[in-house]
């Protein structure tokens, strides 16, 4: 097990180097003069020269790359052109906001996705099965940004049930400690704010959860159907065991590996979906941080944001791969 995990981690090294090289190249591959593109056509020659120097563009690219890697390893992501603040300081609150949103979205997707899949398989060809699978089919094809807009319109602008943008109430803002607002409000015993944070989380997390929920439901159904046809399930039924236990204990355990695969893949993909959801719901996460940086051509922020998201994406995939080997020992021998 340990050698499999070590091998898998070692395989990550060239990938991480490649990622850093791609992200490093973003600013250098801009057609024409990157400093001119960032500052606009009205910029003075001095301003352009000074940005050249600040970004290190006046040195050979290899020297630039080595110093970029050195900075990264010491946790220095550079300085934002727009705010002039160190990106490593700015990025954490955004990252925490995205992690909180993604975590809640994944909980929703896993809970509803797995249960819908199980009940669909259990009551195969029933009205529930048909309805759940039609909804899942539509869910898979749903553009997350459109669903987000419809949610805002229905539940916020028309019904006034839930807030449409932000993470908390601006007039009664959460005092950040960890920047995970659900945790911060509980730590401070502010249950009123906790409830406000939950209300802010519902619409964006449901939008973000839709696609993974649909995919998890479809995979759970097909995986469960396969297992429920096997001999040991028939034996369990013949012994007169309660169907609930057969489904949730015996079948789910053996149907879980393909479901886990999908959950892992979808958790990573959530980070990509977050950029759209955060833009719609004004969620101050890392996706919106990158989006705003693009609007202001703040390339150091674009680079760091993309690198951080990709790093988490790769790490989630690594954890999922190692978890497979834990759940299915055959995998590590392949």
């Amino acid at each position: 097990m340990l050698s499999y995990a070590t091998r898998r981690v070692l395989m990550l090294i060239p990938v991480l180097f490649g990622m850093s090289l791609i992200v490093f190249s973003i600013i250098r591959l801009i057609p024409g003069d990157p400093a001119q593109t960032i500052l606009g056509t009205k910029a003075t020659q001095e301003a352009i020269q000074s940005l050249h120097h600040a970004l290190g563009l006046d040195k050979p690219w290899f020297v630039q790359y080595v110093s970029y890697l050195k900075d990264l390893l010491t946790g220095d992501f550079g300085t934002s052109i727009r705010t002039n603040a160190p990106i490593s300081q700015e990025i954490w609150p955004h990252l925490a906001a995205t992690m909180e949103l993604s975590f809640v979205a994944m909980i929703i997707a896993i809970f509803f996705g797995i249960n819908a899949g199980i009940i669909s398989a259990w009551k195969q060809n029933s009205i529930f099965d048909f309805t759940a699978m039609v909804i899942a089919l539509i869910g898979v094809s749903m553009p997350v940004f459109w669903l987000g807009l419809l949610e805002q319109w229905g539940f916020s602008l028309e019904l006034h049930w839930l807030p449409s943008i932000g993470r908390d109430n601006i007039r009664n803002a959460v005092n950040p400690i960890t920047h995970f607002f659900l945790i911060d409000t509980l730590l401070q015993g502010r249950f009123d704010q906790f409830w406000v944070v939950i209300k802010h989380l519902i619409l964006p997390s449901v939008a973000l959860a839709t696609i993974p929920m649909a995919i998890i439901a479809r995979m759970t159904r097909s995986s469960m159907l396969e297992v429920m046809r096997s001999d040991y399930i028939r034996t369990a039924r013949a012994k007169g065991q309660r169907m609930f236990w057969i489904v949730y204990k015996h079948s789910l355990k053996n149907a879980f590996i393909p479901i886990l695969t999908v959950i892992g893949l979808q958790t990573g993909l959530l980070l990509g979906g977050a950029i759209l959801t955060e833009t719609i719901f004004g969620w101050p996460g890392i996706g919106r941080y990158v989006y705003n940086a693009i609007q202001y051509r703040d390339y150091p922020v674009i680079q760091s944001g993309i690198l951080v998201i990709a790093f988490f994406f790769v790490m989630i995939n690594l954890i999922v791969d190692i978890l497979y080997a834990v759940f299915d020992p055959r995998i590590k021998y392949r």
Binding site: L271, G272, F313
Partner: peptide, 9 residues
């Protein structure tokens, strides 16, 4: 390396 990025990103 290309697959190490979420596609939309």
């Amino acid at each position: 390396i290309l697959l190490a990025f979420p596609s939309i990103l």
